[in-house]
C-alpha cells in the first residue's frame, strides 16, 4: 500500500477517535488511505494521522465536509519537512 501512496499527504485530527471516525468513513468511500503516526515535526502528540494520495485530495475534502468531520490540518511532505496545505 505504501508504494501506492506516491505523493505523501496526511490528514491530522485532534483525537484518535476523530481519526478513526474519518478512517472508517474514507474506507467506506473506497479511498486509499493508511493510518500512520503523527509526524513529530507537526505535533508532539502520541496520536495517529491518515496518509493519503495527493490526487484524492479534493474527493477527501468533500467527504470530510459532507460528514462534518473537524479536521485539524492537512500536510504535504517536502523532503524532511511537512508543509501545511
Amino acid at each position: 500500500m505504501d508504494k501506492e501512496l506516491k505523493e505523501e499527504c496526511i490528514l491530522v485530527f485532534q483525537t484518535t477517535h476523530r481519526t478513526l471516525q474519518a478512517e472508517n468513513i474514507l474506507k467506506k468511500e473506497k479511498i486509499k488511505i493508511k493510518i500512520v503516526l503523527k509526524p513529530r515535526s507537526i505535533t508532539t502528540d502520541c496520536g495517529l494521522a491518515i496518509r493519503f494520495n495527493a490526487e484524492d485530495k479534493d474527493v477527501i475534502f468533500k467527504i470530510i465536509k459532507n460528514n462534518n468531520l473537524s479536521l485539524m490540518g492537512v500536510y504535504s511532505r517536502s523532503g524532511e519537512k511537512w508543509i501545511k496545505l
Binding site: Q14, T15, T16, H17, T44
Partner: peptide, 16 residues
C-alpha cells in the same frame, strides 16, 4: 490521554 501531550492542560475534546 495520548493526545495533545505537549500541553500542560487536559485536552478539551471528548472522549479524551
Amino acid at each position: 490521554t495520548g493526545s495533545s501531550s505537549e500541553s500542560e492542560n487536559q485536552p478539551e475534546l471528548l472522549p479524551d
